[in-house]
Design a protein around this nucleic acid. Structure first.
Lengths: 203, 203
DNA sequence: TCCCGATGTCAAGTACTCGGACAGAGCGTC
DNA sequence: GACGCTCTGTCCGAGTACTTGACATCGGGA
């Protein structure tokens, strides 16, 4: 059993993040007030600083939590597709749809103080990149073990960067982007797969 | 906004009560261990003592919370009936059904250490009596203002004592008891109402 | 009889929070 | 440009609640 104190600490953190996220959604980075977050949560301002260090730390924590949720959702989209190409398409589409609907991302891109927020989005992008590498990479390795790890990594990397770009600067609808990416990348994957297989059967 | 500390304190209390109630249901009064309640909640034994004083205090608190829930449920049953007699019948039946299903009451009546537990039930009975007086009394006053307050009180009192008796020593099915009580008491109420009205019209 | 488990009490230690105060930066107003 | 205002970030003393370990006590069972 986790101690009550531990659970309370986690809950405090969560509630602070809730309040902060709400504030960011409503008013962007500038609309995020430390004192307001504290007041809303029913806690002293100092406690917020104890928990997150400074305003930037708080914002990062908000983004980290949201990222985690984002990835969980995208992951299920991938898991539903046995074929990696389909998984790629599904993941891309899902990610773009989620991003389009996400109030936090909207706020980061449109609200005042968006310079900081979008910088955060970029930082987050790096994290998403790494985390998604792990997930997506595992998926490819599992279903297409014949594709060399390095090539799978390259492919995932390209896809992710394109997706993030589309999130920051929206373009065609999600499905179109997903199809495009799948179309562009699938030859690479299938070729690599074929090479690996022929090489293996040759030896 | 209530302070986070307040909410945490309430939550702690609630979780302690959850653990205690579970223990009582499983093993009766003797099965309730202070140390076990503390361990389950992830808190020190001392904290349990700080919160409830002693074992009896803890048990009382469990009973108080359950009583409150019980009354809320019964109250809605009353509120659905505009006619006090129907309300009486509905409340009695609901109370007996709830009591029959309630694991805590079952434990109090059957588990070892039931002497303390049933004593508690009696103590609780007093509280239920008082609280229910207020609620039921208000209901009667609202819908049959012509019935003297004193008579309404008497009526509610009799009904409650009979109900509690039926909980402690179960007899006929709830509906039968409810009908019986309604049949026995309704003449009293209607007569009192009639008297009050005629007296008023006379003056 | 002795041991064991449980209740209940106590004191000291620890961690966290609160409240208030302060300096500094940014921003609009006069 | 000086001023006032708001918000950030930091510091510290006081208060509060939880923890830990110890102890006395009581009742049941080997």
């Amino acid at each position: 059993m986790t101690s009550f104190a531990d659970r309370t600490k986690r809950r405090l953190r969560d509630e602070l993040l809730d309040a902060a996220q709400e504030a960011v959604v409503a008013g962007g980075y500038d609309g995020l007030r430390m004192a307001e977050v504290a007041r809303r949560t029913g806690v002293s301002r100092q406690t917020v600083y104890n928990e997150f260090g400074d305003k930037w730390g708080l914002l990062e924590a908000v983004a980290a939590r949201e990222t985690e949720r984002f990835l969980v959702d995208v992951n299920t989209a991938i898991a539903e597709q046995p074929d990696p190409i389909d998984g790629l398409r599904a993941a891309v589409e899902r990610a773009l749809i989620l991003a389009g609907e996400n109030p936090l991302i909207k706020a980061a891109l449109s609200q005042p103080g968006s310079d900081q927020a979008s910088q955060l989005l970029t930082t987050r992008g790096q994290q998403v990149l790494e985390l998604a590498h792990l997930r997506l990479g595992a998926h490819v390795r599992e279903h297409w073990p014949e594709v060399p790890a390095e090539d799978a990594t390259s492919c995932v990397d390209v896809a992710l960067r394109v997706v993030i770009s589309h999130i920051v600067t929206p373009g065609p609808p999600p499905a179109a982007v997903a199809d495009q990416l799948a179309r562009v990348l699938s030859p690479f994957l299938t070729e690599k797969r074929g090479l690996a297989e022929s090489r293996r059967s040759h030896v």
